[in-house]
Amino acid sequence: MAETAILSPCPPLRQASLPAIGAPALRRLAEALGAPLPPPGRAAAGEGGLLWRAAPRSWRWLGEGAAPFHAWPEAATVELGPGLSRIALRGPLAREVAARAVALDLREAAFPPGAVATTVHRGATVTLLRGAEGWDLLVPRSLGEDFAARLAEIAGRLEG
């Protein structure tokens, strides 16, 4: 089946929050990342991971590489990855499958590669990322098996 929904453990996902994030803090984070910070709804690639703003005062780093949050020693950090599973949607119909999971605007212009959004699927908070290879859905670990099976079934039906 070319169309797949592959379940795997979520890579490390670290979140750092500050009570207030001003320009100096953002500058330090960008320096630690080695790249400009992404605008809301977009992720920026760093060494071994992706960085995005999850909330006005929270940023997340997904990946095995060292998080750039060393730039913010005062931040409250929390590791969220162990509580999540990753469902990788691949193939030409991946967008169609994703459109059955989330209510987001997944058209090319609205959700290009590099886009990221947190939304809801079947009552659970999920994060959707679009990379060069396809779409990744980060879902609560307890629901990963169920969600992946449902999406694989949809993919199978779409493929006919």
Binding site: S17, R57, S58, V78, L80, R141
Partner: peptide
Amino acid sequence: DATVDETTEAW
């Protein structure tokens, strides 16, 4: 100065 993060499934 407080943050709140649900970690029900992280542990």
